[in-house]
Amino acid sequence: MNTIKAADFDPNFKFEIEKELGGEHLTKCFNCTGCTVGCPITEIEPTYNPRKAMRMAILGMKKELFESEIMWLCVSCYTCYDQCPQDVRITDVLNAMKNIAEREERMGHIKLESAKPAFDKEFVDSIKRHGEVYETGVVIAQIVKHQGIKRLFEYTSTGIFMFKKGKLSLIPKNIKGMKQIKNIFRVVRGEK
């Protein structure tokens, strides 16, 4: 059994989360397990447990959370959100934690191992470039980077079907209001 040392925890982590949009209600959590009952991921993936994620956040186990896959296993179904008697808004709290991690990665402070934040980044970057998401490019890039080119070839027949049915576009197109999209990214993230 691993020993964890309380002295290694980051006591400010909970306050950091509460400053994020969506993270405000974290410390209302009294660990009742209402969230975990009915979580579709907990049922099939024993390493994931929303109650445990809330507990780890309150204790300040930032490093353990950021170095594991835990928060990237949430499927955003909002089941726990509706079941929580304390209105912790768990889905949003998890997102606030992810936001801190993704921001720290953008600043080059940490490297996230999960393929989920990589896909989030691919997707959001596409919006920043085009205004609309360029589905085809985003999905192909993610499959090649995280599942390998071989997996992409396994999708050939699906891809051909989709192309024939007009479900795949081969060229991204930009919306007219790109100036406004750039402004949103500049104000929200300080990005040029």
Partner: peptide
């Protein structure tokens, strides 16, 4: 424009 779908959720302001 795109609403950001599920992939924008971590960044609620965005």
């Amino acid at each position: 424009n795109c609403c950001g779908a599920l992939e924008v959720y971590p960044d609620m302001y965005l």
